[in-house]
């Protein structure tokens, strides 16, 4: 962290992240997304981006993706939903069969040489030369970069290793690294130069909880510098805490995209009455025209729909239902996510 190598992006970070914690607020408007108008062009824009492999498999099916500058975009979806192929297309590794995309306002893959030096990336796990040390591996990556100044290479490599906490292991052979260290070395490689956008594909894959926490902290730290981060994961819980935006993939399609709160607000709330007379409560709820009424041992519940909870409470009390408690729970983000992507082992097509 010695010499101000870190941040270069002029982007202003939108402050949606803290709001994520304060979300159980039924009427939350999908606000933060609208505040993006004044921002410069988005970090990533794709339009109808499609990849059909020669085998005939449609891996990515016409996705329109917008990653606002300064955001932390969680790119979610089960394994095999097309996330990695999308990321490979974004970086010019795989050529799309239809559609177009641009990074930092530069059309790709034409602008590869021009724009990729400003983009750091980790694609489908780390890959380095096992016989070289961590430091020599970074030197190799740096040597391939025609925009890198060889005079500062040593210092930039040290800084990058320091940021990911690998300075002590810089002389160790890559093959002797633990999985977490390998993952961190890949992140270090993406930090060798000042970046405006960092794309991390499954950066926590295969890591233990400790390693996951470390990587998450690292991403948060990168993002506070104003750098746009796109981080993909098949586990919502891993990125939920750091994302401001999410895009959800399912079988090659982008089934949701927007601020995290918008996804949260999507879930329809229920009303749940804790009572000693659930049968009676259920009857009242049914009479009020609520759908999906259920009664259990100590509670009754129904889909809230557009009715006001205050009104329902009054009706319950008038009807003599002993109300011990009443709340309007929303489905958890995890439930919404699974609703969008399908249950595990649900492979469509």
């Amino acid at each position: 962290m010695s010499s101000g190598e870190v941040a270069s992006a002029p982007a202003v970070r939108d402050d949606a992240a803290p709001g994520a914690e304060a979300a159980p607020h039924p009427g939350a408007a999908p606000g933060p997304g609208a505040a993006q108008d004044a921002e410069p062009e988005p970090a990533i824009v794709t339009s109808g981006l499609t990849k059909r492999f020669r085998s005939g498999q449609l891996a990515v099916d016409g996705i329109d993706m917008v990653v606002p500058r300064g955001s932390v975009y969680g790119f979610l979806g089960p394994n095999g939903s097309g996330k990695t192929t999308t990321i490979r297309m974004l970086l010019g590794l795989v050529y799309p069969t239809a559609g177009s995309h641009s990074l930092l306002g530069v059309p790709m893959p034409k602008g590869t040489v021009q724009v990729l030096p400003r983009v750091g990336s980790l694609v489908e796990g780390p890959a380095f030369y096992p016989q070289l040390s961590g430091r020599d591996n970074l030197a190799r990556v740096d040597a391939a970069d025609r925009t890198a100044d060889p005079g500062t290479a040593k210092q930039r490599i040290t800084t990058a290793l320091d940021r990911v906490g690998l300075l002590a292991a810089k002389k160790k052979h890559y093959r002797a690294y633990s999985l977490g260290m390998k993952q961190r070395l890949a992140i270090a490689a993406s930090l060798l130069q000042p970046r405006e956008l960092i794309i991390l594909d499954e950066p926590t894959n295969g890591l233990d909880p400790q390693g996951t926490r470390e990587v998450r902290g690292l991403i948060r730290e990168i993002a506070t510098g104003g750098i746009t981060v796109l981080v993909s994961s098949h586990l919502l819980a891993e990125v939920e805490q750091i994302c401001t935006q999410v895009g959800v993939m399912r079988t090659g399609k982008l089934v949701f995209q927007g601020p995290l709160e918008e996804l949260r607000a999507r879930g329809s709330a229920r009303i749940r009455v804790t009572t000693s007379d659930p049968a009676r409560a259920a009857e009242v709820l049914g009479k009020l025209g609520l759908a999906d009424v259920t009664a259990a041992e100590t509670e009754a519940s129904a889909a809230l729909g557009d009715q006001a909870p205050e009104q329902i409470t009054r009706e319950l009390v008038y009807a003599g239902v002993p109300v011990a408690g009443l709340d309007t729970p929303r489905p958890s983000l995890e439930e919404l996510f699974v609703g969008l992507t399908g249950e595990g082992f649900d492979v469509d097509g």
């Binding site: 490979r88 970086l91 010019g92 590794l93 590869t112 040489v113 990729l116 030096p117 983009v119 990336s121 694609v123 489908e124 796990g125 890959a127 380095f128 030369y129 990556v141 391939a144 970069d145 025609r146 890949a186 490689a189």
Partner: peptide, 18 residues
């Protein structure tokens, strides 16, 4: 095979140049 190719290309090393 090692996977290092994708990292060289995203640096970007440039395909023809590499």
């Amino acid at each position: 095979g090692l996977g290092t190719l994708r990292y060289l290309l995203t640096v970007p090393a440039g395909r023809a140049r590499l």
